[in-house]
Amino acid sequence: MVKIHERKFVSADPDKCVGCQICEYACSWTKEKAFNPIKSRIRVVRVNQLANMAVTCRLCEEPACVAACPRDALTQSEETGAIMIDADKCNGCGWCIEACDYGAIMLHPENKTVYVCDLCKEQGEPQCVKWCPEEALTLVTSDVLAQKARIGAVKKLFQEAKATK
């Protein structure tokens, strides 16, 4: 299995996300050939006008959804870390939905089986990332996110130091 920090997932920068839902449309169009947010693998949350963020699967290490499935319908790809769903085994019971802390798994309204972000395996790259007009979405490892956070923190420190001089 790949190491956790090498796994790339779709992450939204809340400073950049404006809540426009284009990622939802891009996803449902790619996956279902329809514009319909309830069929999107990424969902936008607007807590208030200032707090906007798109949320999708984070490819957890030891994913709770996989552990929760009583029918072994969910497995994690060793190659990419993506959660794979065997639709033949899934009966839509929803244990995985409840287990996911991020609300990243959803029940398909028509097929009645669950679905989750597969990083647009067929397209070669996540289409939500490609379409996001704010460049708020990135396909990134948690290690790189940590790097960015560190750099940001240090920059802020130095700015403050400069300002107090």
Binding site: V18, G19, C20, Q21, I22, R46, Q49, L50, P133
Partner: peptide, 28 residues
């Protein structure tokens, strides 16, 4: 404090303002 967008918008225009101080502090 933030510029947000409507559903499907690729430009975003909605300027959200917050009063930082004074009698109306926190008004958004």
């Amino acid at each position: 404090a933030k510029i947000i967008g409507c559903s499907s918008c690729a430009m975003r225009c909605e300027h959200e303002v917050v009063v930082p101080e004074g009698p109306y502090k926190g008004t958004m």
